[in-house]
């Protein structure tokens, strides 16, 4: 049952809970039911909702449960990372997790399993149905045409694009999964044709290229285009979710080393169901937004070289085909 009032303005009368959550034997424990209900409400909140959740007394009245049950439910969601309890300030939503949960449900219908992680989407960035259309879109863009060196995240959704980069004679920089063994540099001029597809896989790329450690990132030279997949993406050009948790580190390292800068074109490849409407209040947003490319649309504008600071303005309010 849903409460008749939103979480933002619960008009509560102490003696009239808006709906009753009762425990019926055989069903999950009460706190679990409450946590599911609370989760459903939280996921429906705006992605930049910065206010705390209503206070304990209000939520207790909302569902007609005890303080202990409510706390248990809140702790459950804090444990999963969706909520964070700040002593003296209130309980807040972690929007990164909020987006991840919203998108994860949708992914099941379109995402392809990983060889090892199967459908555990928290652990990897999946390939997805109709991803070939995204590849075609990217490869038709002038930034791709002009790029001599492409950075591509080690995402399953980019495997085909990585192979195409090599086929087209582009140098490829791919961080190892989890950045555990540095960056792999793939030189198309030395990889035999029968190893191109192998070199595009996570399993094969280290055998086909050379490795550069984080301290030597500078030696990567200039990167002309940055392509990543993601667990989710916002329409204002942010990558979101555990699947790309290392991308921010990689971007930071490369920016520090001068390998990329704010004018480097950057693109996220996702399915439409992985896009959420921005703005999203993320923990660590990127200062330079990405263009988001799905099978049906391209969202955002790429920066014009040398106009770094104005990119933000250009991105805001741009929400159509490029």
């Amino acid at each position: 049952m849903r409460p008749t009032n939103s979480l933002r303005n619960p008009k509560i009368s102490p003696n009239q809970p808006q709906f009753q959550v009762e425990h019926v034997s055989g069903e999950p424990p009460l706190y679990v039911q409450v946590s599911r209900e609370l989760e459903r409400m939280v996921l429906a909140l705006p992605l930049d909702h910065s206010d705390p959740l209503p206070s304990e007394p209000k939520l207790i009245d909302l569902w007609g449960v005890s303080r202990g049950t409510l706390r248990h439910a809140v702790n459950e969601l804090a444990r999963t990372g969706l909520l964070r309890v700040e002593q003296g300030r209130g309980t807040f939503v972690n929007h990164d997790v909020q987006v991840r949960l919203i998108v994860r449900e949708r992914l099941v219908d379109v995402a392809l399993p990983d060889s090892r992680f199967h459908l555990d989407f928290d652990r990897f960035v999946p390939d997805f149905l109709d991803r070939e259309t995204c590849d075609a879109t990217i490869m038709a863009r002038p930034e791709w045409e002009a790029a001599q060196t492409v950075f591509a995240a080690p995402d399953n959704s980019l495997e085909h694009l990585r192979a195409q980069a090599l086929v087209q004679g582009k140098r490829l920089v791919v961080p190892t999964f989890g950045l555990l063994r540095g960056y792999v540099v793939l030189d198309p001029t030395v990889i035999p044709e029968e190893n191109i597809l192998l070199a595009a896989t996570l399993d094969g790329m280290e055998r086909c290229g050379t490795t550069v450690d984080s301290p030597s990132v500078e030696s990567l030279g200039r990167i002309d285009l940055l392509v990543t997949g993601a667990t989710a993406a916002s329409s204002d050009g942010q990558h979101i979710g555990p699947g790309n948790r290392f991308l921010s580190i990689e971007i930071h390292e490369m920016e520090e080393a001068g390998v990329i800068d704010a004018s480097t074109p950057r693109v996220i490849v996702v399915h439409d169901c992985q896009v959420v409407e921005g703005p999203v209040a993320l923990q660590r947003p990127e200062s330079t937004p990405f263009v988001v490319i799905t099978p049906t649309r391209s969202i955002g504008q790429l920066p014009i070289a040398g106009v770094g600071a104005k990119v933000g303005e250009m991105m805001r309010g741009t929400n159509g085909n490029s």
Binding site: S115, L197, G204
Partner: peptide
Amino acid sequence: QRGFVELDSTTVPPGEESYAATLDGMD
């Protein structure tokens, strides 16, 4: 996790053998 699979090796185009042999390619 996803059970057994079989590979009809004739379905792998020439030049793609090393790819198909990886777990990534096998799928």
